[in-house]
Amino acid sequence: MISSCSSLEPPVPAITRSSQGPIIPPPPQPPHLLDLAFPPSSSSHQAPVPPPPPPPPLAARPAPPHVFGLEKSQLLKEALEKASPAPRSREDVKRLLKLHKDRFRSDLQWILFCADLPSLIQEGPQCGLVALWMAGTLLVPPSGIPLERLIKMATERGYTAQGEMFSVADMGRLAEEVLGCRAELLQGGLGGPNRDRVLQHLVAGHPLLIPYDEDFNHEPCQRKGHKAHWAVSTGVLLGVHGVPSPGYIEDLELPGLFHPVPGMSRQPPSLPEEGSLGAVYLLSKQGKSWHYQLWDYNQVRDSNLQLTDFSPARAADGREYVVPAGGLQAGLCGQALLLRP
């Protein structure tokens, strides 16, 4: 609740004359204060003194903030879906680098490849469709396809009942139909030969949709699929021993952090080897936070590889869910979606 108050000017004290002594004619009036502060020029001795300006009007009370009720989520969606993507990725990355500087290897230089996305907080089990909506703002600019349309199409095609998406293949078919993009189903996990494909895809500025198990802080964990969730990655932070030139510029605030120069041809950096620990971080967003997060690539890979069991809590909540034949093992485990215009 925002309260406001108006302050009134203190009343000017009344001037009283002393009644002591005999009544004598009043003395000559002293000069006006404005005359003392700003003496008139010789050519304007007889100019009349302008009257003082009237006191300013009382400040109007600010309108009370609009308190959102049940319509909050719908209004939030409409506002965000009409807004252009906010440039927040670099700021969030630099905030994370400062906050968790001990987590990042000091023997490496870092190159950040990123694309900016708007945020949208999910309602219920809509994390996959919200991630697809965010990715769609890059594929169908400036604001993508309305989330309601994604939900409607997914429901009509039989991909979802509550907004949940337990099939990467279904997500790919939905993306191609609604967004008109190219969706490549990645199978076999994010490691091995798929690793370089994923990193080159992100360096090129294309979005990646990843199912994983979500921990309490939204980071990847391993719960056998009981906390299955979706995220969209639109960038990567690479730790390298040498930054190729030209085409990259060092950050003014954080020495050792480099950004590709927009519009300038550049040599792609050498990708860190798969055995290099702590050298690759995915820049990711998901539907339960406004901010980007940096996730260690190996942590995401391992979480994605163990999505095998449907959540017992969901199985007992009495709601209907669309789960593919073979369960999460067949629909999510070791899979991701590469999206291109």
Rank of each mutant, 00 (worst) to 15 (best):
I2A: 02
S4N: 14
S7T: 15
S7A: 15
P11S: 13
V12C: 11
I15K: 12
I15V: 15
I15Q: 13
S18L: 11
Q29R: 11
Q29K: 08
L34M: 13
L36Y: 08
A37F: 12
S44H: 13
P48A: 08
P54I: 07
P57L: 11
A59P: 15
P62S: 14
H66K: 05
H66C: 02
V67Y: 02
G69D: 05
L70W: 09
K82E: 12
A83W: 04
A83H: 05
P85K: 03
R95Q: 09
L97Y: 08
S106P: 13
C114I: 08
C114M: 10
L117N: 04
G124F: 07
L132T: 09
P142Y: 03
S143E: 08
I145P: 01
P146H: 01
R149M: 15
T155Y: 10
G163Y: 05
S167A: 12
D170M: 03
G172T: 06
A175T: 10
E177P: 00
R182Q: 13
E184I: 05
E184T: 13
L185H: 12
Q187T: 14
G188Q: 08
V198E: 03
A204P: 05
L208N: 02
I210Q: 01
D213T: 07
D213I: 11
N217L: 11
N217M: 10
E219D: 13
P220I: 02
A231M: 15
V232K: 02
P244A: 06
G247P: 04
E253W: 03
P260A: 09
S270K: 07
L271D: 06
G275F: 13
L277Y: 11
L282K: 00
Y292S: 06
L294I: 07
N298D: 09
Q299P: 01
Q299S: 14
R301T: 11
S311N: 08
S311T: 05
V322Q: 06
P324G: 01
G326Q: 10
A336C: 07
L338V: 06
P341Y: 06
